[in-house]
Design a protein around this nucleic acid. Structure first.
Lengths: 340, 340
DNA sequence: GAACGAGTTGGAACCGGTTCCAGACTTTGC
DNA sequence: GCAAAGTCTGGAACCGGTTCCAACTCGTTC
C-alpha cells in the first residue's frame, strides 16, 4: 500500500506539502502541486479514508435506514439517496430494519456514529424516540414528519383530493378506503385528508379498516369492499391495490367496469399489471435526493428544521372507469365506520 | 464527544487497560474489566470507528455494487447481503451503477478502498476488467462467474431444464425463448442450457432474439412469439415475462389457454399478477448472504476460488397449461434461428 | 529466602493523514 | 535600498484508538 509519505518522499517534498497539493489547498507552488499530483498518480496513491476521516472529523458518508429494501417504495428512495450522495462525493451506508422498530433504533445508533448524516425513510419508531435521535441535528426524514427534524414528505392531502375528485367525476358515490397500519404516519395523513375532502357534501368515504400494507391486505380488503357495495376502492398503497385487483378478479368482479381501483405511490409495477393501475404518483427518488441535501444544510444552528412537501400527481390508467349505471343509491354499510 | 481517554481517566486506569477491557482482550483483571465497562457505559462511550479502523486495518464494512437498486432482483440480493453483514457485525456500503459498466468500474475502485470486501452483483464490466479487480482477493461475485474470483451463482441449466420439461409435459412442441442482452453472462448460461436440453429429440426451442430485460422487451417479444406460432414462451426473466403477458392479453391471446408463459427469478410480483406467473425461483437473498460469507473466507491464499451454484426450483402457477389441441404441427419460423 | 513465572499494568510507538506554526524566501511599496 | 507584506515550505503536534514492550506485583517452588 502506498501512503502519502511515499508520495512525498518520491516527489522530494515534505509530508505537509504533499498533503496540501493533493487536497487542493493553497500555499503550494504550481510546480510542486503539479509534480506531487503526477507522482501520486504514477505510484497509484489512494488516500486512506479512515486516516483522513480521523483528522478531519468528516466521514464523507451518509447513512440510509429503510424498513425493507425489497419494497419498491424504499428501493426507489434509496436510489435517489445513492445518486445524490455520489454527485456530492459521498458514499451511502445502508441498513434494512426488517420493519422492526426496536431494531431500527439500534441501527440508527450504530450507523449514526459512522456517518455525517442519516436519512431515515418512513421510520417505524415512536415519535419520542425519533425526537431523541433528531436532537443530534444530523438526521433527515423521508415520508414522515416530526417536530425536531427536517423532512421531505409528500403532499398526501392533495393526492387524496385528486383521487377522490377523479372518482367522483366518474360518478362514484360509494367510495371505500382500504387503509394501512394504524401506527403508520402516512396512513394517518391519508385519513385526515379523507375526512377533510369528504366534507363537501358529496358524500363520505367508507372506511374498510386497517390492513397490512401488502398484497394480502388488499385481498382481505377487497371482500369487504364487495360486501359493502362499494363501486370504487382507494387503497393505502399500490401493493394493497394489487391485492384488491387480484381478489376482485378472482371473485368475478370486473375492473374497472364493476369496481374501480386507485392505488398510491405509483410503484414501477403499477403500470405493468392488467389492468394498469390508476394511482397517485409520488416523487420517490426526488425525495431521496432532497433528503441528502437537507443533511448538508446544518449550517444555521437552532434554525427551525425544514419540512418540505413534494407535489404528487394522479396518474389515470385503466383501473378506473365511470361507475356502473345501476349502482345502489343507498349505502349498505354501517355509518359508524365513516371517516370524519 | 467522549473518547477512550476520558473513560480511562474516569475509571482510573491507563489507556491500554481501558482499550483491552473494551475490546475483550486478555491481560485485564476481572475487576478492572468490569469497572471500565461500567464507566464506559455511564459516560456513553462510543468507539470512534475511523480511529479503530486506522490501527486495525479492518473497516468492518462490506461493499455492495449493483446495477440497479430498484430492480427487485438486486434488491432481494441486497437484503440478503445486508442481513448477513449485520449478523457478522459489519455494515454495508452500497452503490448503484445505473447499469453503466464504466461507472461500475469507477465505483468498484472507490468503494474498494473503503471496505474489507466487495460483493459484485451481476457486474456489467468485461471479463478482463473483472479479473483485474478480482486479483485483490477481496471480491465475491453474485450471478456471474469468472476465473479469478469466488462466486455465488444459480444452477441456471437445471432451471432451464425444469422449465422446458414442464412445457413439454404439457404437450408444447413450439416453445420459444425470449432472450436477454447478448452481453449478459446469465443469458449466455440460459442459451447454453437450452442448446443442451433440446438435443433430446423432442424438438428445438425457437430463439426469438435478444431483448432488453424489461417489460418493454417482453412486449416486443410477445409479438414475435405470436407471429412464430409459439404456444409457450420461456422468458429471460420475470420482467420480460410480465411484458409478454400484458402484450398477449392486449392482442387477445389468452394465457394460459392459448399461450403459456414461463418467467425466471421468481421476483415478488410474479406471484401477484393475474394470471400468476409460472417461473424458476432462484434463492436471491441466500445468494447475498453466502456472498458475504465468501468474503470472510480469504484464509487460504492461492487456493482456487470457490464457485458455488445454488439450486433453483420451478414454481408452477397459473400462466402455464396444456398446449391448445389444434396447435400447428409444423413450424413457421426460420430454422436458422434455432438455438444449438 | 531467593529465584521463577504467570498475570497485570502503563508508557509509548504507531496507523495515515491534516493543519498549526515558525522560518526562509520572494515580491512589493515607498 | 530597505522594511513590510506575502508566499512557500517543512517539522511537529494531533485525531482516537491498538498493541508492543518493559516493569511491576504476587504467589509458588525449590
Amino acid at each position: 500500500m502506498v501512503t502519502l509519505r511515499d508520495v512525498a518522499r518520491a516527489a522530494g517534498v515534505s509530508l505537509a506539502t504533499a498533503s496540501r497539493a493533493l487536497s487542493d489547498a493553497p500555499h503550494v507552488s504550481a510546480g510542486n502541486r503539479e509534480h506531487v499530483l503526477r507522482t501520486a498518480d504514477e505510484l497509484g496513491y489512494r488516500p486512506h479514508h479512515a486516516a483522513r476521516s480521523l483528522t478531519t472529523g468528516s466521514t464523507a458518508t451518509v447513512g440510509l435506514v429503510v424498513p425493507d429494501l425489497a419494497n419498491p417504495f424504499f428501493a426507489a428512495v434509496a436510489k435517489g439517496v445513492q445518486a445524490r450522495a455520489r454527485e456530492t462525493g459521498r458514499e451511502v451506508l445502508v441498513a434494512d430494519t426488517d420493519e422492526d422498530a426496536t431494531l431500527e433504533q439500534d441501527v440508527v445508533g450504530r450507523l449514526g456514529a459512522r456517518v455525517d448524516g442519516l436519512v431515515l425513510c418512513s421510520p417505524r419508531m415512536p415519535s419520542d424516540a425519533l425526537a431523541t435521535h433528531a436532537a443530534s441535528g444530523r438526521v433527515a426524514l423521508v415520508n414522515r414528519e416530526a417536530p425536531g427534524a427536517p423532512s421531505i414528505s409528500f403532499d398526501i392531502a392533495d393526492g387524496v383530493r385528486q383521487a377522490v375528485a377523479h372518482l367522483r367525476a366518474l360518478g362514484h358515490r360509494d367510495v371505500a378506503y382500504a387503509g394501512g397500519p394504524r401506527s403508520s404516519w402516512s396512513d394517518a395523513e391519508r385519513r385526515t385528508a379523507l375526512a377533510g375532502v369528504t366534507g363537501g357534501g358529496t358524500g363520505d368515504v367508507l372506511d374498510l379498516g386497517s390492513f397490512r400494507p401488502t398484497h394480502g391486505g388488499g385481498v382481505q380488503a377487497a371482500d369487504l369492499a364487495l360486501a359493502a357495495g362499494a363501486t370504487a376502492v382507494l387503497c393505502f398503497n399500490d401493493l394493497v391495490a394489487l391485492g384488491v385487483l387480484a381478489r376482485l378478479h378472482a371473485r368475478g368482479a370486473r375492473t374497472p367496469q364493476d369496481v374501480s381501483v386507485v392505488g398510491f405511490d405509483d410503484v414501477a409495477t403499477a403500470a405493468l399489471v392488467t389492468p394498469a393501475l390508476t394511482t397517485v404518483a409520488v416523487p420517490l427518488a426526488r425525495a431521496g435526493r432532497e433528503a441528502v441535501d437537507l443533511l448538508g444544510a446544518g449550517a444555521i444552528p437552532d434554525a427551525p428544521p425544514a419540512h418540505r412537501r413534494l407535489p404528487v400527481e394522479l396518474v389515470v390508467r385503466a383501473s378506473t372507469a365511470p361507475a356502473p349505471a345501476g349502482s345502489s343509491p343507498t349505502r349498505t354499510a354501517d355509518p359508524e365506520v365513516v371517516i370524519r
